[in-house]
Design a protein around this nucleic acid. Structure first.
Lengths: 136, 136
DNA sequence: CTTGACCCTCCAGTGGTGGGAGGGTTTATA
DNA sequence: TATAAACCCTCCCACCACTGGAGGGTCAAG
């Protein structure tokens, strides 16, 4: 199976497949003409990687998950640990974004958005941060 | 004012300040010895940039906001437009992350996390995506 | 006169691709 | 048999917003 067909089958861009080989995540064979020759197991791995990436796992996590996937002596605890850590990271990101969102929404709300130059958004950006203000 | 003092005053890393000069966001003067010499207005701009970045604005947005900030003929509508678009992007990110989180949390929950190799997380990653399953 | 804390420029790397140059191979068709 | 289209290859650059480091100049204190 050549790279184009694999790309369609696994839903992973051609460029990305070559990159994954570069970093050692997959090791396709080579035909006499120099073309990469993918086995079913390679396609399987690429699908696996595509799904893991879609869940936001880092390349390092993907590598670890793939290794566990191929290791018959793995424990589900190892897999769960990686997923749990990633879940925590996602929670942290959501928390951060939600805080940003709140501040930003407040600013947008408070801005008239008309033809006058006065703008609480700019005022807020140029003033000291709220957490720096004295006790009130 | 030299770059180190400015860095402390504005809360922006030295490297980042030099980078901001590179991309034309600030234009500090130069002393005879070649050192950057920052005016109060530069420090002010750096604080502004630091806060805008902390709210997740892109460099392009920061550039635009800074220009509006310095433009007496601005309208608050222009500022609000940028902030609103950014708010939408944040909302999109939160939506995406929340979906990821839900899937991931389900998987983590369903995994025993013990010494056995059986793991629904790996099974899910290696199987077809949920949206590909036939009508049920 | 040396030490250490500054400051400078330039180069390279991050993550995970995407785009494109420049060139070889295969397949289908005229 | 010629040729065009659709593949495939490697290599390099760009993205974003920095960050780190090498190699070297400048300044203030003891």
């Amino acid at each position: 199976m050549n790279i184009g067909a694999v790309s369609k089958a696994a839903g992973v861009p051609v460029k990305t497949i070559r990159y994954y080989e570069d970093v050692g995540l997959i090791r396709p064979l080579r035909s006499d003409n120099g073309y990469r020759s993918f086995r079913d197991s390679d396609v399987h791995k690429l699908r696996f990687l595509g799904r893991a990436r879609a869940l936001g796992f880092s390349m390092a996590d993907c590598r670890a998950l793939l290794q566990l996937y191929e290791d018959d002596a793995r424990t589900s605890a190892e897999v769960r640990e990686i997923a749990r850590n990633h879940l925590d990271e996602i929670d942290q990101k959501i928390t951060d974004l939600t805080a940003m969102r709140a501040t930003l929404a407040e600013l947008v709300q408070s801005c008239a958005g008309d033809t006058r130059p006065d703008c609480p958004i700019l005022v807020s950006l140029s003033q000291d941060a709220p957490e720096d203000r004295p006790t009130d």
